[in-house]
Amino acid sequence: MDDLTPFLVLSAILFSIGCVGVLVRRNAIVVFMCVELMLNASNLAFVVFAKQHGNLDGQVAAFFVMVVAAAEVVVGLAIIMTIFRSRRSASVDDASLLKL
């Protein structure tokens, strides 16, 4: 069988890029996309591990991550909409005070 290490390295690189994206982008929606990127990177790792160990638990975990990501995106985007509605801005830096 193949060595699956490259997959994991790719997963690590994607995860790190997602991290940096969360830190440098200011548009809340793009930040959210970066979070999704990180989740996907971890999913890749799960699937790789499933293949490595020869059982389906990793795939089930990836499936759960997708479900949770879906729920998270729904709520997160609703929050972004609400904030946008009240301050006409989607920048995460604008919400820097503990008040509207």
Binding site: M1, F15, A50
Partner: peptide, 17 residues
């Protein structure tokens, strides 16, 4: 992360056959 992966040897994958 790369270092961690580099020093771990995964060995042959079991495969999902």
């Amino acid at each position: 992360l790369g270092l961690l992966l580099g020093q771990a040897s995964l060995g042959a994958a079991s495969g999902l056959g």
